[in-house]
């Protein structure tokens, strides 16, 4: 019975969105817009579920004085500190929340991503050994694109940036399109399966 109710809820909430696309009835369109807001609210509250989960897992380690418990304590303090700053003083500019974002989170995010430059270099060494035809194509394309985007590439051969642009605009875009079309077909099929109640694995 519970499964049937869930399937009915899923079908109705999805069917209204499809109906709104084809319908000119303002009542249906407005209701579908309301449903979008509802999903944002439920989704937003669900994200807080993740935060509660983070706190639960880390508080358990702290309580049991497990491995790296002192770092877990720092993590919990920063979760709570940042949350309190956001809730009490707001998230606008020149608030403690903004100060913490600008001076801690944002620089750390850039640093984390830039660290990947080093790991990519070591991965490139392994991937770029031109052992097969496919690896050679990958190697040559990457070199053309990288050199074509730098002044050095233009100094070596002035037509290199043009070829790099062509690779990005045609063969690369063609593959991206192929992948997008394939993935979209798969997503559409999966959506239909969910709406018709064939796919119910999300219910656990």
């Amino acid at each position: 019975m519970r499964t049937q109710i869930n399937t009915a809820i899923a079908f109705l909430s999805g069917f209204i969105m499809i109906l709104a696309f084809f319908s000119a009835n303002s009542g249906i369109v407005n209701f579908s817009q309301n449903l979008l807001t509802w999903v944002t609210i439920v989704g937003g509250i669900s994200l807080l579920l993740g935060i509660v989960s983070i706190l639960k897992v880390n508080l358990k380690v702290i309580q049991e004085k497990g491995k790296d418990w002192i770092f877990k304590l720092i993590l919990v303090l920063f979760v709570l500190g940042m949350s309190v700053c956001g809730i009490v003083w707001g998230i606008e500019e020149k608030t403690p929340f903004d100060w913490l974002f600008q001076n801690i989170q944002s620089p750390m995010m850039s640093t984390m991503f830039s660290i990947l430059a080093f790991f990519i270099a070591s991965a490139a060494y392994r991937a770029f050994r031109a052992r097969t035809l496919e690896a050679t194509i990958l190697l040559i394309t990457a070199i053309i694109v990288m050199l074509g985007r730098t002044p050095l590439g233009q100094a070596i051969w002035d037509k290199l940036p043009t070829y790099a642009d062509w690779i990005m605009a045609y063969p690369n875009l063609a593959v991206q399109r192929g992948i997008i079309i394939g993935a979209a077909l798969g997503a559409a099929a999966m959506s239909l399966r969910i709406l018709l109640g064939i796919e119910r694995t999300y219910m656990g």
Partner: peptide
């Protein structure tokens, strides 16, 4: 590194709490 990593994880989680509180719970609910 461990200190920075845990602070980054904590502050990122807290950032979403602030963001959701204002843009979703307060503004839309």
């Amino acid at each position: 590194y461990k200190l920075a990593e845990h602070i980054f994880a904590g502050i990122s989680a807290g950032y979403y709490v602030g963001l959701i509180w204002h843009s979703v719970i307060k503004q839309q609910l």
